[in-house]
Amino acid sequence: MAAPPRHSTMLSISNAGTSQSTGTDRTQVPQSSSPAQTSGLRVPSNRKTIYDRHLNRSRNAELSRASFAYLFGEMVTYAQRRVTGIQDLEKRKDTPSASVCSTYSSTAPPPPPPPLSPAPPPPRLPPNRPLRILSLLHLIHGPLWRLLFQRAADALEHSVSAETPNEYMITDNDPLVNTYISVPREMSMLNCAAFVAGIIEGVCDGCGFEAKVSAHNQPTEMWPSRTVFLVRFGESVMEREKVLERAGVK
């Protein structure tokens, strides 16, 4: 996505709030009270809004694993239903969901749901922005995994091939979503891990590390649902990595 022209967009937004006040009064109008920008959302009188809720309140809260499984199952079924039949896809080309559908279709059912990704987990994670690939991956392997699954991932590896220096692997021997979710038979177990891959990809992108993440079932005798998440960083990330390396940024 191209960045919008910096200056012009800025002006258009803020003008909306203050246009009525220009001209007559020479002194500054307190824009903080300018009504035009505010929304029409109603809030309960007891102030039960998202802003009144402590951010870490649910950090350690738990819910039933079964509930997650049910919701997840419905999400998977829904995603699958949305793309049954080429005509169906064709029909939806012009709707806002077209882009989602194309994602769905290219990866086969079901997709990693993108909306999860922008929700930033950062405040519960260490209060630093990762600058280098490794610190980002450690963030995912450790704190993020613990946040989601109450334990760290099992392994973090770098591709040994000189041709693919941009590939990293995060391994989970026994991923939650594969263990507890039963999905229709015709869908491989792999697809549930795609959900987690989507979350990882979202975190990478969100932190400014453009990446493609895919999930691969690589069972061992001991761990039948062992899953490897392959993280492939984009060209721009690798370029920046080199620059930062030279600059000595950690």
Binding site: T38, L41, I50, Y51, P118, P120
Partner: peptide, 23 residues
Amino acid sequence: SYVKTAMSPFYKQGMEIKSPVFR
């Protein structure tokens, strides 16, 4: 407060924050 805004499933990155509570 920003994190709370961004956590809402209906908030998409780049959307103007219009919530009066946020303001």
